[in-house]
């Protein structure tokens, strides 16, 4: 569905990504594993159109989307649940959800998607009139996921969805991702919780210093000595 080939990204003179290639098949969960600063967020933001790549190809179903502005990429069906959640703190919960449905592809489906999101996260319905900045971290993460789903995406990139959340909430968030995938959503998952994300993923990539150093099925990487040493502490 999504194919990245030979992607180079720079911030000024600093190289963030160096020849990154990856393949996200339709209906899969693809995990990207790596240390802080390895380039995971840069990769996601470049795919999302928030950074322009210096070189390389990003193809969605065969069409090159590299260099398109983010609102066009979103409208092609690539959604993002960003690191740090990035909800709009002074807007109410329902206004935050409306913002997700501003995309032309999602406007007509707003009512239907709103019902789906509120059924999935009943707490958002309870707090619909409350400013998003007053929600707890877990509730904000649900809002960020809900807001992304309002855009009617076919592929969602989750960037550190469990960061800073209580363990019980982490389980709920990961379960949500599993459920969404079961309903047909293609997912790219960047997770600090490497063991869990490799178990969820059908395919995984290890990113180190802007380069893909390992790839394989989730189970293969879980069994790989280098991964066990570097990321699982075994």
């Amino acid at each position: 569905m999504l194919k990245v080939e030979d992607l180079d990204v720079f911030y000024g003179d600093a190289r963030a990504l160096d020849g990154v290639s990856l393949d996200v098949p339709e209906g899969a969960i693809v995990a990207i594993v790596g240390a802080n600063g390895a380039g995971k967020t840069s990769l996601i933001r470049t795919i999302a159109g928030m950074h322009k790549p210096a070189r390389g190809r990003i193809a969605l179903r065969g069409a090159d989307i590299a260099g398109l502005p983010s609102f066009k990429v979103c409208n092609l069906g690539i959604g993002q649940v960003a690191e740090g959640r990035l909800v709009f703190p002074t807007l109410t919960v329902s206004e935050n959800l409306e913002m997700g449905a501003m995309l032309p592809r999602a406007r007509a489906l707003q009512k239907q998607n709103m019902d789906r999101v509120l059924a999935m996260f009943p707490v958002l319905a309870e707090r619909s009139g409350q400013a998003a900045g007053t929600l707890s971290g877990g509730e904000q993460q649900m809002l960020a996921i809900g807001r992304c789903l309002m855009g009617n995406p076919e592929l969602v990139m989750f960037d550190e969805p469990s960061l800073g959340l209580a363990p019980a909430v982490v389980q709920a968030v990961l379960q949500t991702i599993r459920d969404l995938n079961r309903d047909g959503l293609t997912c790219v998952l960047v997770e600090q919780n490497v063991a869990v994300s490799l178990k969820l993923a059908s395919r995984a990539y290890v990113l180190e210093n802007g380069r893909i150093t390992l790839s394989g099925s989730g189970a293969e990487l879980l069994a790989d000595d280098r991964v066990r040493k570097a990321y699982l502490g075994l």
Binding site: P69, Q80, M102
Partner: peptide, 16 residues
């Protein structure tokens, strides 16, 4: 208002 609230967030949800 969303752009003023969180610029990166506005890019993430696909606001122009």
């Amino acid at each position: 208002r969303a752009c003023a609230d969180n610029y990166t967030g506005a890019l993430v949800v696909g606001l122009d």
